[in-house]
Design a protein around this nucleic acid. Sequence first.
DNA 1: ATAAGGGTTCCAGCAACTGGAAGGTCAAGA
DNA 2: TCTTGACCTTCCAGTTGCTGGAACCCTTAT
Lengths: 127, 127
Amino acid sequence: MNIGQAAKATGLPPKTIRYYEDIDLVRPGRDANGYRAFCEADLHKLRFLGRTRALGFSVADCRALLALYEDDSRASAEVKAIAAKHLDAIAAKIADLKAMESTLSHLVATCAGDGRPDCPILEDLGG
Amino acid sequence: MNIGQAAKATGLPPKTIRYYEDIDLVRPGRDANGYRAFCEADLHKLRFLGRTRALGFSVADCRALLALYEDDSRASAEVKAIAAKHLDAIAAKIADLKAMESTLSHLVATCAGDGRPDCPILEDLGG
DNA sequence: ATAAGGGTTCCAGCAACTGGAAGGTCAAGA
DNA sequence: TCTTGACCTTCCAGTTGCTGGAACCCTTAT
């Protein structure tokens, strides 16, 4: 199976798949003509990576999770630790964004948004 | 006033201030010895940039907002448009993160996190 | 024969800094 | 006076996770 087919099968762009090979996340074989040859196990890994990335894990975390996934003697505590830490990071980001949203929505609400120069948004930003 | 003083006065790291000069967001003068010389207007700009960046605006948006700030004949509609668009982007990010948080918190809650290999997190990620 | 539509590699660039190296400047203390 | 330490300068490289593009090869159909 070519990279194009693998891309369709996994939902990842070909460029991304090449990149994942480049950083050794996946190691497809090669056909005689030099084309990458993806087997089912490769596709499975790629889908795994797609899901972990979609959950916002860093590539480093994805690598660690993949290694744990393939290690039958893993301790689930290791997995949970990575996930819990990421969950904290997500919560922190949400809090940051909510603070920005709160500030900004107040400002936007009070700005007339017409042709005049008076602007509470800029007044606030200017200090 | 040196860059170190300016950094303390604005809360921005010296490296960041140099970077902002590099991309022409601010243009401090120079002393005879080659050191940057920041005036009050420079500090004011830097504080403005610090606040806009803290609200999550891209540097491109910050540049546009700064230009509007310094343009007495601006229309507040332009400012509001930029801010409203950013507000939408923030809301979208929050939604994304909340979805991740929801999925991940369920998974984390169901994982024993002990020494055994059984792991609902990995089972889910594996498909 | 050729054209379209795959595939390959490698290099550059994005955002917004940050770290570090190599070196110039300045003020204070022995 | 010399030196030490804390500044400052420039420039280059690295970060994260891809993405775009150039130049070129392979396969299949017309």
